[in-house]
Computed example of a mutant assay.
Amino acid sequence: MADKIRLLPEVVANQIAAGEVVNRPASVVKEMMENAIDAGAALVKVNFRDGGKDLIQIVDDGCGMSPIDARMAFDRHATSKIGAVEDIYALHTFGFRGEALASIAAVSQVELRTRQAGDEVGTETEINGGQFVAQNPVMCPVGSQFFVRNLFYNVPARRRFLDKSTTSASQIKAEFQRIALCNPQIAFELYANDAPVYTLQAGSLAGRIVDVVGRHIKQNLLEVEADTSIARIEGYIGRPAAAKKRNTEQYLFVNGRFFKSTYLTSAILKAYEKLIPESCQPSYFLYLTLDPGRI
Rank of each mutant, 00 (worst) to 15 (best):
63 C>F: 11
293 G>D: 09
205 L>S: 09
232 R>I: 09
59 V>Q: 08
194 D>L: 07
19 G>I: 07
179 I>C: 04
41 A>V: 09
137 P>F: 06
3 D>Y: 04
285 F>W: 05
139 M>K: 10
41 A>F: 04
50 D>C: 04
231 A>P: 03
198 Y>G: 01
76 R>D: 08
195 A>Y: 12
208 R>N: 12
162 L>I: 13
50 D>K: 06
72 M>S: 10
165 S>H: 14
97 R>Y: 10
11 V>G: 07
21 V>E: 07
19 G>R: 14
150 N>L: 08
220 N>E: 11
190 L>M: 08
226 A>N: 12
122 G>Q: 00
64 G>R: 03
68 I>V: 14
162 L>P: 08
106 A>K: 02
99 E>C: 08
139 M>I: 10
153 Y>R: 11
116 Q>S: 06
50 D>N: 12
276 I>F: 05
1 M>C: 09
16 I>R: 09
230 I>S: 12
213 V>T: 04
61 D>I: 06
256 G>T: 09
24 R>H: 12
158 R>Q: 13
86 E>G: 10
13 A>Q: 12
140 C>W: 07
16 I>Y: 06
196 P>T: 00
274 K>S: 11
46 V>Y: 06
288 L>N: 02
109 Q>C: 15
199 T>W: 09
77 H>E: 15
188 F>P: 09
109 Q>L: 07
227 D>M: 13
129 G>F: 02
293 G>P: 04
226 A>Y: 08
25 P>W: 10
253 F>P: 03
161 F>V: 14
227 D>F: 15
199 T>Y: 06
85 V>R: 12
241 A>S: 08
136 N>D: 06
248 T>D: 13
115 R>V: 01
237 I>C: 01
31 E>A: 15
275 L>E: 02
188 F>H: 02
150 N>K: 13
99 E>R: 00
104 I>K: 03
271 A>T: 07
144 S>R: 05
211 D>G: 11
82 I>M: 04
266 S>C: 12
37 I>S: 04
130 G>K: 00
294 R>D: 14
287 Y>A: 00
71 R>I: 10
12 V>M: 09
55 L>A: 03
250 Q>V: 06
249 E>W: 02
183 N>Y: 14
19 G>E: 11
223 E>V: 08
251 Y>T: 00
67 P>E: 06
257 R>F: 09
107 V>H: 06
21 V>D: 10
159 R>A: 11
186 I>Q: 03
216 H>S: 09
284 Y>L: 03
198 Y>M: 05
60 D>W: 00
120 E>Q: 10
1 M>I: 04
269 L>Y: 05
157 A>E: 15
208 R>W: 02
27 S>G: 05
202 A>E: 06
33 M>H: 01
105 A>Y: 04
137 P>T: 11
185 Q>T: 12
79 T>P: 00
66 S>N: 00
49 R>F: 15
142 V>R: 01
166 T>C: 15
113 R>K: 15
254 V>D: 12
168 S>Q: 12
281 Q>T: 11
